[in-house]
């Protein structure tokens, strides 16, 4: 009989103990379940907001560095720097509002004010970011054009690359017009980025085919005045002015107001005007007037650069003329 009662007691114990154990307060829980812990919520939100402020400040710092290092005009740089200073002052205000909040209610009120401040600040940030991005993309397009000239001078077919560059360029010009009219360009910028990526992919394809012979030299120059180019070469001459090629059969000329001549083989080219000259091979380039140049005697060397305001003669190529 007693054994049965003991068994019943045991079962009751088995049922009761887990529920009692579960109800026991656990370490770290100061408030009973159901009641929000405002102090904890306050700390979490304050930390989150302070981290966000810090990220905004870091972003502004980096943007400042990028603008300083960019090829933007001095006027644009000064204008952007002024904007960044204003944004930094706004962020300082936002930081103070959040930092001074001592409890959940104060933080909630502070965030309400921050929200209003942020509307203007984020608009300014976007304008600065877009202006910087457009300047960067302008530079990138110019670099891609340089690459296209170099590939064409070497003898590669650059039609696809030039089409992609022209496509990106027209979108860039549309964006510039929209910005001048105060229109939103966020979608257009994404479109431009895609087009630049496409042009860059074409450039990378051609770069894999671009393998100048080690004995070939390379010269790239801009001249306002006259020039004479002789040798065994592949060359591209672009610009405005008169150009004579001897023999004429070694040249192909593109129609248009701008001279674009591709020369292949043993040739002698001379011209007067404003030109960009890119040549691969073995030869001599003499320029009179003003301009700049970079060249390497052999393909596996590094480029040497310089400028001139009277005359200069550059010998390029490590092989026989």
């Amino acid at each position: 009989m007693s054994a049965r009662w003991m068994l019943v007691g045991l079962l009751v114990l088995a049922v009761l103990i887990p529920s009692v154990a579960g109800a026991a307060p656990q370490a770290g829980k100061e408030f009973p379940a159901g009641k929000p812990d405002f102090s904890k919520i306050f700390n979490e939100h304050k930390e989150r907001m302070m981290n966000w402020v810090q990220n905004c400040e870091r972003w502004l710092e980096r943007m400042q560095e990028k603008v300083n290092a960019s090829k933007l005009s001095e006027e644009s740089k000064l204008r952007i720097q002024e904007r960044i200073r204003n944004m930094e002052a706004n962020m300082e205000q936002i930081r103070a509002q959040i930092s001074n909040a001592n409890n959940y209610t104060e933080l909630r009120d502070a965030v309400r004010e921050v929200r209003t401040l942020w509307i203007n600040t984020s608009k300014e940030m976007r304008l600065v970011a877009y202006e910087n991005a457009i300047a960067q993309m302008d530079v990138i397009i110019a670099k891609l054009e340089e690459l296209a000239d170099r590939f064409e001078s070497y003898g590669l077919d650059t039609t696809q690359l030039r089409n992609a560059i022209n496509d990106a360029n027209s979108t860039l010009n549309e964006i510039k017009t929209k910005i001048a009219n105060g229109e939103d360009v966020s979608k257009d910028l994404r479109e431009l980025k895609k087009k630049i990526d496409a042009a860059f992919a074409e450039a990378k394809k051609l770069a894999r085919e671009y393998k100048p012979k080690p004995s070939n030299g390379i010269v790239m120059a801009n001249v306002s005045g006259s020039f004479e180019l002789n040798g065994t070469l592949n060359a591209l001459i672009k610009g405005k002015g008169n150009v004579t090629v001897n023999p004429e059969s070694s040249a192909s000329r593109a129609n248009g107001t701008v001279v674009a001549i591709v020369v292949r083989g043993n040739a002698s080219v001379s011209g007067e005007g404003d030109f960009k000259i890119i040549a691969h091979g073995n030869g001599t380039l003499t320029m009179n007037g003003t301009g700049n140049y970079s060249y390497k005697e052999c393909a596996d060397q590094k480029f040497k650069s310089g400028s001139f305001n009277e005359s200069v003669t550059i010998n390029f190529g490590c092989g026989q003329l």
Binding site: W59, N132, I140, I196, D197, F200
Partner: peptide, 11 residues
């Protein structure tokens, strides 16, 4: 060019 493209995208 690749680096500049990535940096612009990142910002």
């Amino acid at each position: 060019i690749e680096k500049e493209l990535n940096e612009t995208e990142q910002m």
